[in-house]
Amino acid sequence: MSGYRFDRLKILAVDDNVHMRKLVVTILQAFGVSQIHEAENGERAWAVLREANPDVVVLDWMMPGMSGVDLIRMVRTNPQAPNPFVPVIMLTGHTSMDHVRLARDAGVNEFIAKPVAVKTMMSRLVSVIEHPRPFVRTSAYFGPCRRRRGVEEYRGPERRAEAKHPQAAE
């Protein structure tokens, strides 16, 4: 038994596919989460985010209009975002390194590769609770630190400023 009070969590589940949304909501409810908000696209999710200020966002990548990655960028950098530090778990069928890098560079905290599995969902939820990453602010990026280890020791200058992809600087 882990002793987590998941019933105290407020989670926003964003997916344009109604079946996937229902699956995610079912899993979260079974975990004990009682406050679950849903959104079927990025625009609606942004509105719900501002109204409800969730503790965690579970987000699909590929949606019509504003994509999941677009939404994360807004969450992290828009002055109207209620909580730029909110943990974002991206649920996606994209598993190539290029896609992972792109989402990471937008500010995602954790990934779940579809098809969704109960254990993975629990594991990512526990990860954002127990192992939050430090945040980084540079001229080109604001979001969770994209290095998994050793970051606490680094206090030097921005070393990736001349990198090919400016948003990769940290």
């Binding site: 882990s2 969590l9 602010r137 540079t138 940290e170």
Partner: peptide
Amino acid sequence: QPIELFMPPNMLKAKVGGGLGGL
């Protein structure tokens, strides 16, 4: 260019508790 690295307060942990960290 400067880099700012900081750890936001863990509000999530404060909210849900749990001391063992397991699944």
